[in-house]
Design a protein around this nucleic acid. Structure first.
Lengths: 127, 127, 127, 127
DNA sequence: GTGGTCTAGACCACT
DNA sequence: GTGGTCTAGACCACA
């Protein structure tokens, strides 16, 4: 069961967005599947409804989900999703910062490559 | 001439931290070289001294610079970096987030490895 | 009611850090308990909010509290403390300085050991 | 050869005071022995003469040394030294803070005692 | 001159 | 409401 981390510097709504995005992209949530209602998810995560609302709106804006008034929020079809070049650039930036930091901390190029290989082979744990 | 972007979502002090970090890692700023004083850089960037100080303190925490009160702020010698598990964990976390993000955006493990290899080879030869 | 001493050589934020540290260690403040908000404590102590925030940030760095932006600042759970070599080294350094100082002031090894034993037994039973 | 640590949060003059105080108390410097002149020590430590001056003045104020105008600065006789109850209290405070920090970091009372014993038996290295 | 601390405000994003 | 960031001052100890 997913629980947003209050200690994280990432805002709660962003954590929820990322979590749902992952589940959609990885196929855990299928197209046209219904997401929990705002209130429901609010209770499940013990998070303010406004925060859930904001997360859903963000996902809608990026075409990961669509909202049918009075019915709920549903997973969008993959075709509708915007390519999100921004996200890719941001992810590469994370990678770049991580690599330079580790080099600065004295880790060799090979060690870093090994660490990355571990991350890739180990699959994706923890969101 | 570097100028922080006030419109950026990245905070000014973070921009300054990143800029100086790059210059230290790339060798533009050499060990024991004096950084501009807080007030001086404040004038150069037309940014409040407190903001500069915040940036310097952050760099100090990560052992990029050291501070001699009354004398100035200086680039730390690479040898002086003690292995710092906290910082290593932070850097690995960046890597982890970048890798999982890229995977979810559809990049293959091999493509990610290649990207990392690029960063390592193309990047800073000797930190 | 705690009031920072403006005349003290110890800075205000350091006094606040020490005061809150004592209360957390002694159990007056319990894990996950909410600390006063920055503004609230600022009013209570008639101290500038920035000064309070500086204190809170210092406590956060040492894992005494955690911060949930928009929610408040909370006492960290003891279990959440990851072993932090940097902090351990800092604490051992305090010990070392105290011991050498006392030796030079003429205190014998056994007297110092007794003083430490007192601190341990008399002090906080369970952190 | 003693070298003040610019990275230290302790001011340079205070480091010099402490070093000389140690050497006087431990008998490395004997009563009536001449200390290096301000200029000489300034060159030896590559430190601003004003800083040395300030250190000597501080030692004089506390009767660790005396100044003979035109002749130099000399080690005071032990009887003249003030008992310095303040210093003892400060040292005990360092001990107290170190112990509470280490307890908070999860070290047991016995481990702390062992660490202190090590410090005592190991003699005094590093100022 | 240098950094360190502090006050008195302000605006922002998030809950 | 919350914390996070920033500006525009000020005073201090230290080199």
């Amino acid at each position: 069961m997913f629980q947003p981390d209050l200690r994280s510097r990432k805002s709660i709504y962003a954590q929820i967005v990322d979590k749902l995005r992952e589940e959609i992209l990885s196929g855990v949530l299928k197209p046209d599947e219904k997401l929990p209602s705002v209130r429901e998810l609010s209770r499940m995560l013990t998070v303010n409804p406004n925060t859930i609302q904001k997360a859903y709106r963000d996902l809608e804006r990026r075409h990961y989900v669509y909202t049918a008034s009075g019915l709920g929020t549903f997973v969008e079809k993959p075709e509708a999703r915007t390519p999100d070049e921004t996200l890719r650039a941001e992810a590469l930036e994370l990678l770049r910062r991580g690599v330079t930091e580790l080099r600065y901390l004295g880790m060799s190029g090979d060690e870093i490559k090994a660490a990355v290989a571990d991350l890739i082979e180990g699959g994706i744990e923890k969101s």
